[in-house]
Design a binder for these strands. Structure first.
Lengths: 138, 138
DNA sequence: ATGGAGCTTCCAGCCATTGGAAGGTCAAGG
DNA sequence: CCTTGACCTTCCAATGGCTGGAAGCTCCAT
């Protein structure tokens, strides 16, 4: 492969996957939903990636690791590539996400706390009597 | 409606929904995936529910509220209706779920902590410089 | 020339739900 | 008796963020 795009060596989707940590299937998916722009193609139809596309993929990967949803990542990529951005906009996106994380954490922690209490009260032996089931049965 | 099933009044799916807190659509779905047994039917094909079916629905609802997945709820319902169960089995199911909740909470909390640090370091003003984007860009 | 690795597209499934369309049924009011 | 409208039925599609597989094409080394 190694198609010369004029600004450096082009890599296949597999190479871009290795370089970015985003697997090939997912790269195609991201392209299909418009999260990343359509990749260039060789004459035979293979997608071609350069260093800057790989950087975008790495950015997306890191953002996903932090739990951002696709839509927000789209906004973040847009801001990242906008030299006249305000950091306040970026911060707002981050704070929104933090709020959602907090809400989810609180929800899960409430479940855990309730269950912990019920499990602590359960003898966990061969007898049928069980506070967990008593609670679930209302 | 009010079909006499011989053990009390039968209710429609809408009444069962109101009585259990599980909406009609979801009741049908639960039946379709085998979480709950197939409901009886009137001559004209309407599903019929009695008090014990409503109790199962309430049990399922409560278990979902505690975050249990469908498969585990199936096990819990089975144990609930098994008079020769061991409470240790119920407890094991609960503890498995607690472990998963803990893992998820830890994952989300790690995201939140990282983001909080980045957001705290971000000026959030009209300038483009932003630690959040710097982090994401690697 | 052949083999196999890698590329292409498309389709389907995961989880637990929700929404909608198209059509049948029931009870109340005129 | 007939209409209205609330309810019921089934089926199909979408959500988010992937993952897997099938069928077919291309590239490169042997």
């Amino acid at each position: 492969m190694n198609v010369d795009t004029g600004v450096g060596m082009g890599m296949t989707i597999g190479d871009a996957a290795k370089a970015s940590g985003v697997n090939a299937k997912l790269i195609r998916y991201y392209e299909s939903i418009g999260l990343i722009p359509e990749a260039g193609r060789t004459a035979s139809g293979y997608r071609v990636y350069g260093p800057s596309e790989v950087n975008v993929l790495r950015f997306v990967k890191r953002a996903r690791t932090l739990g951002f949803g696709i839509e927000r990542i789209q906004r973040l990529v847009g801001l990242w590539q906008d030299r006249s951005r305000c950091s306040s906009e970026v911060k707002r996106v981050a704070l929104e996400h933090i709020d959602e994380l907090e809400a989810k954490i609180a929800e899960l922690a409430a479940m855990r706390d309730t269950l912990r209490e019920l499990a602590d009260a359960c003898h966990g032996d061969e007898r049928p009597e069980c506070p967990i089931l008593r609670d679930l049965a209302g």
